[in-house]
Design a protein around this nucleic acid. Structure first.
Length: 128
RNA sequence: CAGGGGGCUGAGGCAGCCGCGUUGCCGCAAGGCAGCGAGGAAAGUCCGGGCUCCACGAAACAAAGGUGGCGGGUAACGCCCGCCGAAUGCGCGUUUUCGGGCGGGCAUUCAGGGAAAGUGCCACAGAGAGUAUACCGCCGAUGGACCGCGCUGUUCGCAGUUUGGGGUCACAGGCAAGGGUGAAAGGGUGCGGUAAAAGCGCACCGGGGCUCUGGUAACAGCGUCCGCAUGGCAAACCCCACCUGGAGCAAGGCCAAAUAGGGGCCUCGCGUUCCGGAGUUGAUCCGGGACAGGAGCGUUUCGUUCCGAGAGGCCCGGGUUGGCUGCUUGAGCCGUUCAGCAAUGGGCGGCCCAGACGAAUGGUUGCCGCCGCAGUGCAGGUCGAAAGAUACCGGCUGCGGAGACAGAACCCGGCUUAUGAUGUCCCCUGACGC
RNA sequence: GCCGCGGUAGCUCAGUGGUAGAGCGCGUCAUUGGUAAUGACGAGGCCGAGAGUUCAAUUCUCUCUCGUGGCA
């Protein structure tokens, strides 16, 4: 069962999970205690106007729809954060990158080089 | 032909697959099938309405705000259509003292009532800026001063000369043409006139008043009178005419959950009777029953449960951030016909066409269409007498590319702003040819 | 979604139809052995953008643009 994140608290909690970035997007993943596969999309006003933001959300939704049933992490929240350039990027390219990123998240990897980013104890909580 | 600017048009089409939202049907359910699914601006929120709540005797007046040629259209408008007027630009005709004037045409633009009801402002410059003014200048007619000449008188030294004539001064005075200042200098041009001038007089033009004619009207035209002192700003106050109650679907209504069922103010109401108790009787209060009454549930006569004295409204404080409704059939869309110059309106027939709420339209493929490049004389065009040629128009094939501005959120009518290609109209610049 | 408010010097703000100021900041000089404080002088602005009204617009009117506040 795939459902949608609607609570602000869920989005904030996802920040404490694994973070994997690609040129078009950032993927956050975090276990959710048996709520099934859930996803959420964040596109800030920095990206563009309403047309650009909604188009990005529609394309992300399509990406997740194709990837999550087979490659999604069971009982995890998935949050996609849009980045500048994600609208112009080729759709197939984005789909490939999402596959890589999901595989990395499955193995518990996250982006190096952001050492200041994870807060205390968040890594253990994420692994449990 | 090339480049640029502006207005209008226009918003690619048809299918397949995988998805999303919603409605209907089927199914115990999982789900399946079918229908529909963004715009001309959905935008800005600048105007006008519907709808909802609040306030309010109808209405009138005042305040505040808005609109502003006339007529029509409309539910209404600050919108649209037609007409009028003005300004600007470009041709044309006519006249000319060659500066220009007049008539008429086309295009574009116009927040286009009133400045002779009143108040205010018009900086700087300039002499003078609104009961005009006199700096430079012009004049020497009139008065004055002075110098000759002439004339008269004379005591021969001179004296007089208002009305003999000339000259000088520019004191009084006359003028406003010219110079100069300014955004603007109190009608313009010409002739006459004068000492010099001036609507002082005249002609034409401009302006104002009145009558008449045409037009629904704005207004236009003819005639006649007035020499004509009375700028500009009302997107300054203002005057005149007309319009407007306030707020907005986060309006408003219902349900659920949650909190401490708290405080204040206001309105309406608290029936009949019996038994017991408190109270010295009574008034009153407490408990119980009956009747009348009210509310809910079940299809109804009826049954049953509850209430039976409290109920409602507003404000403060506290809690919640859930659901339903309003929510899409409407000043609707399409076709046709009639009326009208048009905007638009009437008749007839047909159609149902988004309702989301972390907010639905996406992804991908094929064919056709558009643009560019290359190849190919190849249906046609073109050149050539033909053979043939192919720069150009066109055909065919291949490759590549573009697809703008932008996403409904209660709904309509406008305005404004944004907008790639194609087509079309107008304007500007440049080159070439005639 | 609906309803308001604002944009002036590097910063915080006045201002009025006639070429715009104040405080802080900045620069130079003076004062001091030196610094601060103080004093004197000075620079720095197409008043958010574009149209219109007017002789003249930062000001008045309209249209955009950017920022900001409120309403369940």
């Amino acid at each position: 069962m795939i459902s949608v994140l609607t609570k602000r608290a869920d989005f904030l909690a996802a920040n404490k999970g694994l973070r994997n970035a690609r040129p078009g997007f950032v993927l956050l993943t975090r276990p959710n205690d048996g709520q099934g596969i859930r996803y959420g999309i964040t596109v800030t006003k920095k990206i563009g106007n309403a047309v650009v933001r909604n188009r990005m959300k529609r394309r992300f939704r399509e990406l997740l729809r194709a990837a999550l049933p087979d490659n999604g992490l069971p009982d995890h929240d998935h949050v996609l954060i849009g980045r500048a350039g994600g609208v112009e990027r080729d759709f197939g390219q984005l789909a490939k990158e999402l596959g890589y990123v999901l595989a990395a998240a499955r193995e518990g990897k996250s982006d190096p080089g952001r050492g200041r980013r994870p807060r205390r104890g968040s890594r253990q909580q994420g692994g449990a």
